[in-house]
Simulated assay, not measured.
Amino acid sequence: MKSILLKISVIFLTIGLSNGFTTDGAEDIQDFQGKAYYFSKAKMDLGTWGARLSEGQKKEIEARMKNRLQKNYVLTFNREASFFEEAEQLDAMSGATDSWGKNFTPGHQYKNVKTNSQVQNQEFYGKNFLVKDSLQPIEWVMEKETKQIGNYTCFKATASISTHDLAWYNFSWNTLNDDLDGDTEKETPMTAVEAWYTPQIPVGHGPLEYWGLPGLILEVSAGNTTMLCSKIVLNPKDKVEIKASDKGTIVTKDEYQRIISEKMKEFRANRGGRR
């Protein structure tokens, strides 16, 4: 059964950009820090199954999935390190946090471009994992196109990255079915990535797995996901220590994927076998 989260096409808002970004404080070379606020908004594609639903039913499903389709994030960064986290959201229907969805969403993420290291805290069915690995290798192609995002001039860069590597914290029933069928000869799916970065903030940081450009990434589109920065605060008065999480069972990204797959196999078996 294909995860419904993979059947989304992304639309994104431009509200708030007409007045430009907010930039507070002058840069201190020795103690530089910033905060970038991102948002993404996705629209569900229910495919042929959705064609049998009424408009009322579609709206009800979208309302129930709202907290998974609309996300807000904060990236705190200095010259070498960054800390990326999702703002907590309440379920649109029940007022509770989305416990099921949290199993397959990115946790608090620490990246260090100097040491080429990443530490991400993931919770899977009540157990905490500390996923330690290298940063995602990205071979960026620098393009000539530019555009204005808020008050910042941005340059375009593109890349092609393994879909599995971009969403190692997620889960797909299709992947599990391929493993059960012993199909190891399938071509590795790749995701086309388009990023817009600004040299006006010369740090190599960005949201999620993205990094390594000569400027902060303000917008990134990858497959069915688009993320846009809506506000930047440079050198805020109240600075925070940017450090990695230190609690959880230490694993690599590949090991974490194997753990998820094994647990989902058990889940399927307990629910009456393979569908």
Rank of each mutant, 00 (worst) to 15 (best):
P207I: 06
L13R: 05
Q57G: 10
Y38K: 08
P207G: 13
I201D: 06
I259G: 02
D28E: 02
E262M: 14
T226M: 15
I11G: 15
I259R: 05
K58Y: 04
R52I: 06
S221T: 15
F12S: 10
S172I: 03
V251M: 08
V193K: 02
S162A: 15
V233L: 07
K231Y: 11
S261G: 04
L218A: 09
E194V: 09
F77I: 08
I260E: 04
L90S: 10
F171M: 15
E241S: 07
L6E: 14
A87F: 07
M93E: 14
D45N: 15
E185N: 08
I161E: 01
P207L: 05
V74K: 07
K253Q: 13
S99Y: 08
V193A: 01
A26L: 09
V141P: 12
F84P: 03
E86S: 15
N270Y: 01
I138Q: 09
S134I: 02
H164P: 00
G34M: 03
S18N: 11
L208N: 01
A269N: 13
K186G: 14
S9C: 11
M142W: 09
K2P: 05
I61E: 00
F84Q: 05
D238R: 10
V240F: 13
E145A: 14
L213P: 05
L228H: 10
P236C: 05
C154V: 11
P202K: 02
I61R: 04
A96G: 05
A42G: 15
K59S: 13
N170T: 04
S40T: 07
E209F: 01
K2F: 15
P207V: 07
T191S: 02
I259A: 03
F124G: 06
S230F: 15
Q120I: 04
G212H: 10
S160V: 08
L228F: 12
V141Y: 11
T76G: 00
